[in-house]
């Protein structure tokens, strides 16, 4: 199922559905890279709350998305990794070391707001 992407102010929010194929992930990657440029977004949130399995391919794609959007000037935060999914990821050896994560959408947005604010006003 294609991942819907919402534009909210300076941010893009992608809400991953439970059934995520490799093709959906590649599509999400392409869509986000294009939309970050089109909407001049400063931040991207990938919400994986509904995702029931994160395997090595999905983790690698999320990492790639985070790296590429960063090169395009937008910070990516992955939010909503469920406890069971986190448990399996650690056993598998998927640490997502260099990707910013947050508990949920709210925390993710708060993080991005702070980041963008910090970048634009030095004396804040």
């Amino acid at each position: 199922m294609k991942v819907p992407i919402l534009k909210q102010g300076d941010y893009l929010i992608a809400s991953v559905q439970s059934v995520l194929t490799d093709l959906d992930l590649k599509q999400l990657h392409d869509d986000l890279v294009e939309k970050v440029g089109r909407f001049r977004s400063r931040g991207v949130i990938v919400d994986v709350t509904a995702l029931d399995v994160m395997d090595s391919f999905a983790a690698r794609m999320l990492r790639t998305i985070a790296h590429i959007t960063k090169l395009r000037g937008a910070e990516t935060v992955v939010v909503g990794i469920q406890p069971d999914v986190a448990f399996s990821m650690v056993q598998l050896g998927l640490m997502l070391d260099d990707v910013t994560t947050a508990l949920d959408l709210e925390e993710g947005l708060a993080y991005l707001k702070q980041l963008v604010k910090g970048n634009s006003t030095k004396d804040d």
Binding site: V53, D55, F57, M89, L92
Partner: peptide, 15 residues
């Protein structure tokens, strides 16, 4: 948690 573990393993093997 075990169900997620099993599904993840199947995903890796199938891939």
């Amino acid at each position: 948690s075990e169900l997620t573990t099993i599904a993840t393993a199947i995903s890796e093997l199938a891939r």
